[in-house]
Design a protein around this nucleic acid. Structure first.
Lengths: 212, 212
DNA sequence: GCTATAACATAGCACAGCTATGTTATGTAT
DNA sequence: ATACATAACATAGCTGTGCTATGTTATAGC
């Protein structure tokens, strides 16, 4: 009997994979240039490990982007829903900004040149956190009944990404992030929330620490 | 007599410089990989020309980014001020989006990894167009008297950059740009403009062609 | 134990950006 | 007009890049 798919010898060690991408993330943080040889230099593995585990440097970068989205998702998941969904959506945006500021180089890689479907899916998955909060806000009557949660989430995302990418990638100074609350309040108010109540919700969901 | 500064022999030909960056922009458009040798291959100059004119490939990329900001400034300059400064600011944002969509690869390069002061200055110069429109809006009484034109311009920029970079770089589909009018209206209204009047101004400044 | 399989190590390939060195063209001074 | 000084230019070769071809070794199933 032929057991084609079950014949496996010398399985790859998953630890090697995580070791490599963690080292890559570390090198990204310390601004060291990441090359095939410099990447494996700090480890006990050979250059071929990059090919068996990632299929090449492109695959490694792809996995690194994926790691970035995973960390982002972890951070978004730490935002515990409260009774105020507008505050929650603000808190999610704040978490998004905080993640980008804590790992600016990783964030830059996440939204760099070569995107493919896998990464786009990962981006959509993280967006889903915002969609849920937007939907809860609509159900709570904070936004107009005809509000499309996906659209509101996308608009919030655009604001967050616009601000943080201009700050993380260069031209704008970090205090420019302080525009966040005003932009979010403007968006949520335009979506139907009461201005004063919205201001309070956004203020309670925002983390002033970001602009430091 | 020594004329130190005036002793010049065989001046560099500016035409070579423009030829190279135009070819680089063209190769960017056609997705050809831009390497030192592939860049000069189509020209009659040697690889050394890149070093005499730009000091290396990094300098060439820097000049290419500069060219991107120059084109952007040209496009923004084509927006003729009208009697409605809110419309004008919307039109400027629309021109910003249109430029990014017409030259997506160039736009990506403009906001890519290595930024330095020269490029940041170029970015600030283009921002100045938005600042002027914001200031005119304030003087016209459309925005609150205590509105900071630079801040309003920066907020508009963040919205534009957030939207268009998410569209040009991947995850969002092009129709997502249709969120622009709502976001701008929300921002301008929050800055003091009358909601109905603002909606009309934004609608008249917006180019629906973008979302196609 | 034997064999098949795949992870692994090594060496070398093509190409990248860059630089050292020689050549040529051009403005200045005699 | 001629000679010189200067810098743009052409050529060839350098180091380092990602990648691949080839041989070796460790592991799973009979």
């Amino acid at each position: 009997m032929l057991c084609i798919l079950e014949i496996v010898a010398r399985r790859k060690d998953p630890a090697v994979r995580t070791q490599l991408i963690e080292r890559a993330a570390q090198m990204l943080r310390t601004r060291e240039p990441i090359t095939l040889r410099s990447l494996v230099a700090g480890t006990s593995v050979s250059t071929m490990a990059v090919y068996t585990h990632f299929g090449g440097m492109d695959g490694m970068w792809k996995a690194l982007r994926q790691e970035g989205f995973t960390r982002l998702a972890t951070r978004l998941a730490q935002v515990t829903p409260s009774a105020d969904p507008v505050r929650d959506l603000t808190a999610l945006v704040t978490a998004y900004l905080g993640n980008a500021l804590d790992h600016p180089d990783l964030y830059r890689v996440m939204f760099d040149a070569n995107f493919d479907l896998e990464d786009a899916q990962a981006a959509d998955d993280t967006l889903e956190y915002l969609v849920q909060a937007a939907e809860r806000g609509r159900l709570a009557g904070r936004y107009r009944a005809d509000t499309n949660p996906l659209e509101l989430a996308t608009q919030s995302w655009a604001i967050a990404h616009g601000l943080v990418s201009l700050v993380a990638t260069g031209p704008l100074p970090r205090p420019a992030l302080a525009h966040g609350p005003l932009l979010l309040t403007a968006l949520f108010t335009a979506t139907g929330d009461d201005p004063d109540r919205c201001r309070r919700s956004v203020a309670s969901g925002w983390q002033p620490r970001l602009t430091g």
